[in-house]
Amino acid sequence: MTATPEQLLALLEAPHWKQPGSTSRRPEGPTAKRTEGQAAVNLHVLDHIAEGHDALARAAKLAKEGTTLAKREALALREGQAMKSEAIIGTHYRVRQMGCPACGCLTLLPKNGRAFCISRHCARAGMQRRWAFRELAFVGPGKVMEIRRSDPDRIPKDARPLRWLVGFFTETGLPVSMSTLRRLASTHDLPHWYNPMNHREHLYAISDVAIAHAQHTRATQRGECAKTSGRPPCTGLADMFFAQTELAATVAEAKKLCSVCPLRQVCLDTAMTRGQVGQHGIFGGLTAGERRALKKGQSR
């Protein structure tokens, strides 16, 4: 049974986790070490505990409101807090069990306090999609994408043997047997390569197999992957749509995604009417400069 957010915070209250070096994260920076010396406690854990109690209190207050949105926000607060606690402890059960909000696959891994989708088919312009834990808990899994296949002439970096993939999907809470993976790979004609370390076994791309696994899970109506609600194509790509430096290639890729988004006009109208005309970023397929020019032309 998965631990509750309260149980995880209670675990972090133990003396072990308050000691310096109890987590992989550095308790303080080099400047603090030179001027103040080694801290007697792990300040990162103490801050997390205080913020956690505040988050759970806000969640309880929202739950009392009784509205559908308030209840959903309360649940997202609780789940996001639990994901943060698990990341500190060194586990990632909740993140691994969540389907990607963009591609629907169970390919999320935690890193630096965020959840990243490791599927190459889900990335855009070489950028992995990522979500804050609270955001991930709020939006939930998205619609599973159609089958995609890697280039059979090149071994991708995420190529792994089937025995490794069995363990990978076991950690998601939706295990699959070796025979089922073989059947899925054969049914969808997924490319494979000889393992240079063991010529008796084949390698398959995680990105290819993950889609087949998600579709199989959806077909059997198990778990969150059964949900089919779609997401805007910009989901999880804040680094692309709000890049500090608007490179031509990045802007072109973002606009390409906007061109097929059913919410493009709604997004643009919102930006034009709610004071976001000059805000940094791409809304409705237009950059800040293009939105200002459009606003200027409309006011004439």
Rank of each mutant, 00 (worst) to 15 (best):
R134N: 09
G140I: 00
L162G: 10
V144N: 01
R154D: 14
L108A: 05
R120G: 10
L109G: 04
R130V: 04
M145D: 04
F168Q: 10
R134L: 08
I118M: 07
A102Y: 00
L162A: 14
M98A: 13
I155D: 05
V166S: 05
F133Y: 15
C100K: 00
A159W: 02
V166K: 14
C117Y: 02
M98R: 13
L109T: 14
R96W: 06
W131T: 02
R94W: 09
C100W: 01
S119M: 09
G113M: 07
P156I: 07
A159D: 07
D151A: 13
V95P: 00
F138R: 11
Q97Y: 01
R148L: 10
S150Q: 13
A115Q: 03
G140F: 00
L106E: 00
F168Y: 15
A159K: 02
R149H: 15
S150D: 12
R154P: 01
K157S: 11
R129W: 03
M98F: 12
R163S: 15
P101F: 01
A102N: 03
I147E: 11
P161D: 14
F116L: 12
R160A: 15
Q128P: 02
G104H: 03
R96G: 02
G126K: 07
C100E: 04
G99Q: 06
R114T: 12
R148M: 08
M145V: 08
W131D: 03
D158Q: 11
A132E: 15
G113W: 06
R149F: 13
R160W: 10
G104C: 06
R94Q: 13
R160S: 12
S119L: 09
C105N: 06
P156Q: 10
C103D: 10
D153L: 14
A115T: 03
R154H: 14
R114C: 11
F133S: 03
R124E: 04
I155V: 15
E135K: 03
V95N: 02
E135R: 07
F168M: 11
P141F: 09
K143F: 01
A159N: 03
H121R: 02
C100G: 10
D151E: 15
L109F: 09
D153V: 09
G140Y: 01
R154A: 14
